[in-house]
């Protein structure tokens, strides 16, 4: 396979399948297996139904929250890695990418074991509860009024919290790595200058670190948001009865609903949105560099 020019690779495995899906999206389902290419817009029109728009919005919401949480969690991690001794930095980076060595499905099942009613988190909470209960009893207090008669497990799984938690867990490395890359390139004398001139740590962070890390922040936001938007496995396995994202609807069109044209149209709408985000980014970075130049 090494001798195959990349152009052929791109054509066979990307352009042709994608073109097929694009053609399907203008097709009309004939009976059970056949799709006739009629250049109908009916599939796209159907996707504009408020039902599907609402699911698109919900997917944006999930992906947006995920990206925000990832950013807030990843920033301290990236800073910690940047300022750690050069000796242990490769090890820390390895730890960040380590989850990629395991299949997403396995990691998601592992999360189920952690979050479920009789999972590790609830075991931990129960242990703490028992301890607190015993302590209160020891001091002669009646614990039932304060912490309840008995331990009630926290509902951590099969709800929207679990979906966002799962998405954050899966996408965190996508945010950490670009942040680290831009922080690592940062000229630290700026930080020293800022602190020397009397700015607080917080002020320095806001006025120096964040602006200098901006390219990393933008890359991280984009490569976290796009895959999160198209997730279907996480809402499927961790979600509750109202955690459906648009990719779950798309998946069903290719399976139980057996409506490939409609599924293709939904996929392409998702893809157009992605293109739009990337185009906006390109525009933004061009403006950014123009500003720098001026």
């Amino acid at each position: 396979m090494l001798g195959v020019p990349p152009g052929i690779w791109l054509t066979v495995f990307f352009i042709i399948p994608l073109s097929l899906i694009w053609l399907f999206s203008f097709g009309d389902k004939q009976g059970l297996v056949d799709i006739e290419l009629t250049w109908t817009m009916a599939n796209y029109a159907r996707a504009m139904d408020p039902l599907y728009l609402q699911i698109f919005l919900k997917s944006f919401w999930f992906a947006g929250i995920t990206t925000l949480v990832c950013l807030l969690v990843a920033f301290p991690i990236a800073i910690a890695i940047t300022f750690s001794p050069a000796r242990i930095r490769p090890i820390l980076l390895l730890l960040v990418i380590l989850p990629f060595w395991t299949n997403l499905l396995i990691r998601t099942y592992a999360l189920i074991a952690v979050l479920r009613t009789k999972g590790y988190v609830n075991f931990g909470l129960e242990y703490l509860w028992d301890g607190l209960n015993a302590t209160l009893m020891f001091f002669g207090m009646d614990p039932s009024g304060l912490i309840g008669e008995r331990f009630t497990p926290a509902p951590l799984l099969y709800n929207n919290f679990a979906v966002v938690f799962g998405l954050v867990y899966v996408h965190l490395p996508f945010m950490v790595l670009p942040l680290y890359a831009s922080l690592d390139r940062m000229d630290r004398s700026y930080l020293e200058a800022s602190l020397d001139l009397g700015a607080t740590q917080f002020r320095t962070f806001l006025s120096i670190t964040v602006p200098l890390a901006m390219p990393g922040i933008i890359s991280g936001v984009i490569i976290t948001f796009i895959p999160a938007l198209g997730s279907f496995l996480t809402p499927d396995l961790l979600g509750g009865t109202d955690s459906q994202m648009i990719a779950n609807v798309i998946e069903r069109q290719f399976k139980s609903a057996n409506d490939w044209p409609f599924g293709s149209a939904l996929s392409f709408i998702l893809m157009y949105i992605t293109f739009f985000v990337l185009a906006a980014r390109a525009l933004f970075s061009r403006q950014g560099s123009a500003m720098e130049a001026s």
Binding site: K29, L51, Y52, D242, S243, Q244, R252, A257
Partner: peptide, 18 residues
Amino acid sequence: GEEYQRLIDEALTRIQAA
């Protein structure tokens, strides 16, 4: 028939979106 599949799928989509 296929019309029925679509009815069912839309019902499920609405149930999960509600």
